[in-house]
Design a protein around this nucleic acid. Structure first.
Lengths: 148, 148
DNA sequence: ATTGATTTTATGCATATGCATCAACCTTGA
DNA sequence: TCAAGGTTGATGCATATGCATAAAATCAAT
């Protein structure tokens, strides 16, 4: 049986890895906290609505899943919640009786408009203000080398 | 009432932000999945045990909390679970009757030794192999500019 | 057409997390 | 000594997540 390569990463790599995990967890916590303080739903609601905003004809659940980092069962129940809050319209799919087509509602668009200024401010405060434009480009370039 | 600055971050910054979130979530999911596949506990167990490994005299819960990114109530229950699995020793603190002192047990050290090769391999596979040494140094330097 | 495999989605149950609150203890200052 | 306030940690309850599996529809191959 072949085993995947399990080379020891360099100390430099482990340091970078640890900092990546710690930084992203801290930033995410701060942003989620900031949204909650403003009485807004979690970031993942924003992501779902943003994906659907561009899709005039709506999307199936499995299509959303391909675009996002969520398990099937989590997405299923997340869509339940967002739809229950009135931000999604869920209608049966004519070509495939198994699924529904999800579309953003006017209320969902309004939520996006309400969340963005807050989200944007949090990105500035906790992220952008600490980096130069050149830093941002470098960071994006480095991250783009990684899977995902 | 004064309002926090809510400048619009540049497109470059938003792109870097989005990539940071997406990459770290993907990587974390892959590593957690890899650990689980080997029958090992989640990464946060490793983090707790690693913090305690260096502390001969043990740590209080609030000291661990300062070193880690966990809420008080989550840490409380996490320590319950790790201790229940036999990897932590929990004894009353003589100077402060409210708390206990947590110390890693031999079983905990064994778990660290068992997890590290797997964890190390996952860091290599999903992270280090995609970056040069110079990339890693640049990434760590950029991330160190951010809070956390 | 019919069968069998695959895809898509939902859900019961166990576990984990978030929030509010409580209990126990410590510290300070009269 | 005592009271008031702060710190440390645990927990009941609601919500969310993970896992396994079920249900329903589609697709492939005869």
């Amino acid at each position: 049986m072949t085993v995947k390569s399990a080379d020891a990463p360099s100390d430099t790599a482990v340091t970078a890895w640890a900092r990546l995990l710690r930084t992203s967890q801290t930033l995410l916590a701060k942003v989620e906290h900031g949204l909650k303080q403003e009485g807004l739903p979690p970031l993942v609601w924003y992501d779902v609505l943003l994906e659907l905003q561009g899709e005039k004809t709506g999307l199936r659940q499995f299509e959303l899943q391909e675009r996002m980092l969520l398990t099937q069962y989590n997405l299923s129940r997340l869509l339940d919640r967002i739809a229950a809050a009135g931000h999604l319209d869920r209608r049966p799919c004519p070509e495939d009786g198994r699924g529904q087509i999800y579309r953003i509602t006017p209320s969902g668009r309004a939520l996006l408009r309400k969340m963005w200024p807050v989200y944007r401010g949090l990105i500035s405060e906790h992220f952008a203000e600490h980096l130069s434009e050149s830093d941002c480009r470098s960071l994006a370039r480095l991250l783009s080398k990684l899977p995902g």
